[in-house]
């Protein structure tokens, strides 16, 4: 589905990713773990074309996308939910969803606002609320829902649980699992290991812009030494 080869990227003079490889299969949910500043967010931005890659290749469903504009990548079926959510604060919930709407896609679930309101009942109760007057958790749900309106085949989720109250984190995990059941391929970054443990099949650990470990989530779970090495203080 998604294949990354020797990806390098950064901002101006600051290089963040140093030659990074990753492959995602259809229907797989992979968690990108690592401490702050390890390059997790930059990875997702580089995949989406928001940070131009300095080197390396990205292929999505066999097509090379690392030189494309973000909107072309989105139209190929890759969706992105940024860490800061970036809700259009002047627009209502319904309008935010409308911005994300793309034509029906062969082989992907067809999402409508109605179906998304079933997945996120909170949103259904505030259709005309302006994005700027929503809580952090509601904005996070809206951001995910908005990206699903493009009927994506794969979803990039940047820190979906960050800054959310525990009960919302639970709801978020439920929603992510629901998406996985629908057959969506998901790459998410997380600092919250418990959240990642609940949803991910596979874990990749990033440190200082390089992939240091990858394997089944259960293996990481069973190996305290590994967690200690890369994740713990």
């Amino acid at each position: 589905m998604l294949e990354v080869r020797a990806l390098a990227a950064g901002y101006g003079r600051a290089q963040v990713l140093f030659g990074f490889d990753l492959a995602l299969r259809a229907g797989e949910l992979v968690a990108l773990l690592g401490r702050n500043g390890a390059g997790k967010s930059t990875t997702l931005k580089a995949l989406m074309g928001l940070v131009p890659p300095a080197a390396g290749e990205v292929h999505f469903r066999g097509e090379r996308i690392d030189r494309l504009a973000p909107w072309r990548i989105a139209r190929l079926g890759l969706a992105y939910v940024p860490e800061e959510r970036r809700i259009f604060t002047d627009l209502s919930v319904t309008e935010n969803l409308e911005v994300g709407r793309l034509p029906r896609r062969e082989g992907a679930v067809h999402w409508t606002a109605q179906r998304l309101f079933e997945l996120f009942p909170n949103l259904g109760r505030m259709r005309d609320r302006r994005g700027g007057s929503m809580s952090g958790g509601e904005q996070q749900m809206l951001s995910i829902a908005r990206s699903l309106m493009g009927n994506p085949l794969a979803l990039l989720l940047d820190e979906p649980s960050e800054g959310l109250a525990p009960v919302i984190v639970d709801a978020m995990a439920g929603a992510v699992l629901e998406l996985k059941r629908e057959g969506l391929c998901v790459l998410l970054t997380e600092q919250n290991l418990r959240f990642a443990r609940r949803v991910a099949d596979r874990a990749c650990i990033l440190e200082t812009g390089q992939l240091r470990h990858q394997g089944a989530m259960s293996a990481l779970d069973a190996d305290p030494a590994l967690r200690e090495r890369y994740l713990a203080a």
């Binding site: 989406m48 074309g49 928001l50 504009a69 973000p70 909107w71 989105a74 139209r75 969706a79 992105y80 940024p82 970036r86 259009f88 604060t89 002047d90 627009l91 911005v99 994300g100 793309l102 908005r146 990206s147 309106m149 493009g150």
Partner: peptide
């Protein structure tokens, strides 16, 4: 408001 995000959504 945020043309980069709009672009990332396929606009």
């Amino acid at each position: 408001q945020d043309r980069e995000m709009a672009s990332a959504l396929g606009v």
